[in-house]
């Protein structure tokens, strides 16, 4: 995955020539103050937003040249999202959260095993409102992994969790990179979690710098 010369502005420039290359099996943390453009960068990486300028190559293709339907398919098949508050579908059980994605991809991943590996084997038929924050976030990780993506994007995945649960979540995300060969990009404010990542980058003045 290669991000090249990304520029984006709202009322003022927020990204000014961001370059980033992520290799398979690499876990990267991006830090930076509020309003520095971290989430905008993640939306661009997640194909949810087109930048004003720049390219993003997932393999040989610049994804910004693709139409919306092609980008949706890429999001479905190649990218797994983990959001700050898990954002599970409130009326679907833990198992059904994954089945919803599987129904779209047609991929027959063993979702039961995936959830069991994440310590949720006894919660398969529970609705999200009966899960703890940590459990919800682990379901979100399972949902992000169930389509076997090559890239996982996580935006403040530990923000609403205590240290122990936050640590579990970060370690699982790092394991997705180190054990399963995924590319993992995590935006976080929690400095206690940075050590699980291979690289830590700071977004400042619209550009990424290595810490």
């Amino acid at each position: 995955m290669r991000l090249t010369a990304i520029h984006h502005a709202y009322e003022q420039p927020i990204l000014s020539g961001v370059n980033l290359t992520v290799s398979p099996g690499e876990c990267i943390a991006i830090v930076g103050p509020s309003g520095s453009g971290k989430s905008t960068l993640l939306q661009i990486l997640g194909l949810l937003k087109r930048p004003d300028a720049g390219t993003l190559h997932l393999g040989p293709v610049d994804v910004f040249t693709l139409d919306e339907e092609a980008r949706r398919k890429l999001r479905l098949n190649e990218i797994g999202f983990v959001f700050q508050d898990a954002h599970l579908v409130p009326y679907l059980t833990v198992m059904e959260q994954l089945e919803l994605v599987q129904a779209e991809t047609g991929l027959a991943t063993d979702s039961r095993r995936l959830l069991t590996d994440l310590g949720l084997g006894h919660r398969l038929n529970e609705l999200p409102n009966r899960l703890s924050g940590g459990e919800r976030q682990r379901v979100a990780i399972a949902r992000a992994l169930v389509n076997d993506p090559s890239l996982i994007l996580a935006d403040e995945p530990t923000a609403s969790l205590d240290y122990v649960n936050g640590r579990l979540v970060m370690e699982r995300l790092a394991a997705a990179a180190h054990e399963d060969g995924k590319r993992v990009i995590v935006i976080t404010h929690d400095e206690r979690m940075l050590d699980v990542c291979d690289r830590v980058l700071r977004l400042r003045d619209g550009q990424l710098e290595t810490l």
Partner: peptide, 15 residues
């Protein structure tokens, strides 16, 4: 917001 999440993770608008 919930529908936005579904679209973000690639669920078809048709679904």
């Amino acid at each position: 917001p919930e529908l936005g999440i579904l679209k973000a993770i690639g669920i078809r608008t048709r679904t």
